[in-house]
Design a protein around this nucleic acid. Structure first.
Length: 596
DNA sequence: GTTAGGG
DNA sequence: CCCTAAC
């Protein structure tokens, strides 16, 4: 069979396999598909084996792991600690920057454990609950420097570098125990909650049918498709039922990064995993996507239409850690001041409202202050915090509120009712009201409103401090936000950066990824990007189905132009031929179905 | 939330 | 990659 690199490939001798209508998508503008459809996992499974090989053979070289600073599920346990010094001094991460470094300290050993046990990610990881403590000495004030707290380091960083600093902001995660045993990923043959539901015998048979009938793909074996020893590619593909034993070889330290734990089903098996601060035995489960942390993704702010309130409240009653619990005795701050220019942006002042000012202090949220009326509800507070955090960390966050260790379950209660903004007569300072509104007296500094912002990595303990102590100068300088109850003002806006949304890092598809994409499209068609995503890139959080669709588009284009016109990493002609074949095939099918 | 398609 | 209309 001669491949024709044209789009009007004729399918003579090409027996079009019948696609069960049940396999058609019901979403979007594409063809419809009944719910409950399942897909096969053969692609995933085959790659999983290779991934295991990869790990077996090269885990002791972490260069690949740090490639593009992309962390996934496995990185949770594979990732090394980043030493504090490097973190503090490191320049803002750039694609590929410092990715080639190897650090002896960061080495983790990795073994295959023949016994299958599950371990929850949150149990493997011990979320670092070291909260940063407001430190008056480091609270901006007139200083042109923002106090930059990263993993226990207080670094003076020129405010002009704020943007860059954002990219360094991390939540911290620690692995406490020496040995963690359990499944890293659970996959093949066992439909996961996200992808597994799409498994479908009919689709499988169709897939085989397609392979059998498609002259361009029938000779392609799974092995070939996964033969690339490319970590990036592997990231996107679930692994088999490998059970591994991870042993940290270095002393437990905090490390930062953005491990991706979604879909990793871990269970505690031996009780060896302990909380870093061991404040309680409760676990905060995680979800969502690693890229929420890195590459740092900033989203637009939503000044209306708040995100749905999460009903989840995480059971961590002792999130706040006083300064003396810090291992080095230093004080830290992560509450970031608001420049005076910010005041100019404040609008709409309602003298009838008492506001309580909140800032997140457990980790650096440089441009975030929250101003919310005391008669606002807990739910609105959660939404506000979540929106704010979402704008910085990306979505997938969840916010819970604790007041003095007690969970606030009723989202309908007001802040006053929950005690968040009471104690007006303590030594608190009147922070608000520069325009004569009722001075809001807030609680003493140590009476914190603790909250959590959960992302995929960990339930990052977040202290929403209503502190009005002298240390909280930064807060004091925050003018009233007026009646925009849910106003969250990003500092960046006031710094003249009108571009609040940072473009994602460009991550060219590797050949391996292209292979996986081609294979998935051959199997599923060109109008089912969500399914393609689930099948071939389920764990590649940085590849959305839109990305895959776009990549397919460019692949088709690339295949149609002359090799001389092509740029970037060359895609094997064989793959491009398959692209054209599959594209033509599926277009042909679609048009045929339209006629039918 | 997905898909399709322009930018 | 981004954006967004259309679904």
């Amino acid at each position: 069979m001669v491949l024709q690199r044209t789009s009007d490939y004729r399918f003579s001798g090409y027996q079009v396999p019948e696609v069960p209508r049940a396999c058609r998508s019901t979403r979007g503008r594409g063809p419809t598909r009944k719910s409950g459809q399942n897909h096969s996992f053969d692609i995933l499974a085959s790659v999983a084996g290779k991934l295991l090989e990869k790990y077996d053979n090269s885990l002791h070289s972490d260069a690949s792991i740090r490639k593009n600073q992309h962390y996934t599920c496995d990185d949770i346990v594979l990732m090394k600690e980043v030493d504090e010094e490097r973190l503090s001094n490191e320049k803002p991460l750039e694609p590929g920057n410092s990715s080639e470094e190897t650090n002896e300290k960061q080495m983790l050993t990795f073994e295959i454990n023949p016994t299958s046990k599950d371990l929850s990610p949150s149990e493997i990881m011990n979320y670092d609950e070291k909260l940063t403590i407001l430190d008056s000495k480091n609270c901006f004030g007139d200083s042109p420097y923002f106090s930059d707290t990263i993993e226990g380091k207080v670094q003076g960083v020129p405010s002009s570098k704020l943007d860059a600093e954002l990219t360094e902001t991390r939540s911290s995660i620690s692995i406490k125990d020496e040995i963690i045993t359990g499944d890293l990923m659970k996959l093949e043959g066992e439909p996961s909650k996200s992808a597994g539901s799409r498994n479908d015998d009919a689709q499988d048979s169709f897939s085989k049918d397609f392979k059998n009938h498609c002259p361009f793909t029938s000779h392609i074996t799974d092995e070939q498709l996964v033969s690339r020893d490319d970590y990036e590619s592997c990231l996107g593909l679930p692994m088999g039922n490998a059970n591994r034993r991870i042993k940290k070889t270095s002393e437990t330290k905090d490390w930062i990064g953005a491990p991706d734990v979604k879909d990793c089903d871990y269970r505690r098996t031996d009780g060896k995993v302990k909380e870093v601060y061991d404040d309680d035995e409760k676990t905060c489960y995680t979800q969502e996507k690693c890229q929420k942390i890195y590459p740092f993704k900033k989203r637009k702010f939503f000044y209306h239409d708040p995100l749905p309130t999460s009903n989840r409240v995480f059971n961590r009653d002792d999130a706040f850690v006083s300064p003396d619990k810090r291992t080095d005795g230093k004080c830290y701050t992560s509450a970031i001041g608001v420049s005076s220019s910010m005041a100019a942006q404040q609008v709409g002042h309602n003298s009838n409202e008492c506001n309580v000012k909140l800032s997140i202090k457990s980790f650096k949220v440089p441009e975030l202050f929250i101003d919310i009326p005391t008669n606002a509800t807990v739910g609105s507070l959660k939404r506000t915090v979540m929106e704010a955090m979402t704008s910085i960390l990306g979505d997938g966050l969840h916010v819970g509120i604790l007041v003095q260790g007690k969970k606030v379950r009723d989202d309908n209660k007001t802040l006053i009712q929950t005690g968040i903004s009471q104690d007006s007569n303590r030594r608190s300072t009147c922070l608000t009201s520069q325009q004569g509104s009722s001075n809001v007296s807030l609680r003493p500094p140590m009476k914190h409103l603790n909250g959590f912002v959960e992302n995929n990595v960990s339930a990052v303990p977040t202290t929403l401090s209503t502190s009005t102590s002298p240390e909280s100068k930064a807060l004091v300088t925050v003018p009233e936000f007026g009646m925009e109850a849910l106003a969250v003002v990003p500092l960046r806006r006031k710094l003249g950066h009108h571009e609040c949304v940072q473009r994602r890092i460009r991550r060219p598809f590797t050949v391996s990824e292209v292979e996986a994409l081609v294979r998935a499209v051959e199997k599923l068609g060109t109008g089912r990007w969500r399914d393609v995503k689930f099948h071939a890139f389920d764990n590649a959080k940085h590849r959305t189905y839109v990305d895959l669709k776009d990549k397919w588009k460019t692949l088709v284009h690339t295949a149609r132009i002359s090799p001389q016109q092509r740029r970037g990493e060359p895609v094997p002609q064989e793959l491009l031929d398959r692209v054209l074949a599959a594209q033509a095939y599926w277009l042909h099918r679609q048009s045929k179905h339209r006629v039918d």
